[in-house]
Amino acid sequence: MAKFNLNINNRNYSVEAEPNMPLLWVLRDKLGLTGTKYACGEGICGSCTVHIDGNAERSCVLSVKDVEGSSITTIEGLAENPDHPIFKTWIDLEVSQCGYCQPGQIMTLAAMLNKSSSKEEIEREMSTVLCRCGTYHRIRKAVDKLVEEK
């Protein structure tokens, strides 16, 4: 067990954890930030996506020791502004069904929109975030709307 100083959602946290513990489990089990979801544990599905220094990264394959000193944003951080255009669009279009993958979908898209990624880049990235309920059709509508509004 070692102590790590993490900056999450612009707050400083000091946590004790095994150095190899994935950030996902630090967020969920140590800090109670359960909006970041566990689904595959191998970086395949994207449900656990957070922002590390503005980049969308999969917290299930990132060791806590490697994110010390980084600026980490979770879905709870993004939701500090509930009027964020992504949330408004997601509600308007009723994108979510079971909702479990949605934080990962939203965090992935938010990073791309912040960086003004191209449509092709967004297409590629969003295609790596899995949804079992099949909300893709509405995610696409939301993405198109948000890209257009930007």
Binding site: L33, T34, G35, T36, T74, I75, E76, A79, P82, F87, W90, I91, E94, V95, S96, G99, Y100, Q102, P103, I106
Partner: peptide, 12 residues
């Protein structure tokens, strides 16, 4: 609108 959407997308 679904009552469960906001809390789901806010990660709450």
């Amino acid at each position: 609108h679904r009552v469960d959407t906001p809390e789901k997308i806010y990660g709450k």
